[in-house]
């Protein structure tokens, strides 16, 4: 039996799909092209193989995701990860939260912020800049968005410039998207322990 993980963790779980991923041997030419399958690249995650059921979306989603999280300039990568983590905590997407908490800790070379958030929840004690970033991303991630002028004013007074604020909007909104795929189409599990 596999164990479904229900608590936030920085240890990235295995993602187990609830639908059957595309089987590479049955994949269409369009699916193979979107998956960038080549003789030397046949290792594709079950998540991406699941998304390959909707190949037109997959084709546009991957470059958009990378541009929002990794393009140069604007907000630091670690702070974009904090926006992603806030959304994932609102939507209780354990898998996304694990991946992006781990990346935040890696980029910051510190587990301090993510330890506090996982231990104390959204009210964890953060420095003023992280506080403004996290609160805005949480409010924007509610449905409908609960972000208001007071959240924007807090970002500006914490010293974020307009380019950084735009990147925060994009990275936290992006996880409104990612969470609705990861948390809906599959679940985070701990693989069964090998006995003996």
């Amino acid at each position: 039996m596999t164990e479904v993980i229900t608590k936030f963790t920085r240890t990235v779980p295995h993602w187990q799909p609830r639908v059957k991923p595309v089987d590479l041997k049955d994949a269409s030419a369009d699916q193979l092209a979107a998956l960038q399958v080549t003789p030397s690249n046949t290792k594709i995650s079950e998540y991406v193989l699941t998304l390959a059921h909707d190949v037109e979306s997959l084709q546009v989603r991957s470059p958009l995701f990378n541009a929002i999280m990794y393009d140069r300039g604007g907000m630091s990568r670690a702070e974009r990860e904090l926006g992603a983590l806030a959304a994932s905590m609102v939507n209780h997407c354990i898998y996304c939260a694990a991946v992006h908490a781990a990346r935040h800790a890696d980029l910051e070379k510190s587990t301090d912020v993510t330890d506090k958030l996982f231990r104390d929840g959204a009210q964890a004690e953060l420095d003023p800049r992280d506080r403004a970033i996290f609160d805005f991303a949480v409010a924007l991630s509610e449905t409908p968005s609960q972000a208001g002028p007071q959240h924007m004013a807090a970002l500006i007074s914490a010293g974020l410039d307009e380019a950084e604020i735009l990147d925060l909007i994009l990275s936290s909104a992006l996880f409104g998207w990612a969470n609705r795929l990861m948390h809906v189409l599959g679940e985070p599990v701990r693989p069964p322990k090998t006995v003996g």
């Binding site: 639908v19 909707d54 968005s145 925060l168 909007i169 936290s172 909104a173 609705r180 189409l185």
Partner: peptide, 20 residues
């Protein structure tokens, strides 16, 4: 099912971008 989720998930993103 994947098509439904992609539609829903994209809108979740775009509507938040607009609000932000």
């Amino acid at each position: 099912i994947v098509r439904l989720c992609e539609l829903n998930a994209f809108l979740a993103y775009q509507l938040r971008v607009i609000a932000g």
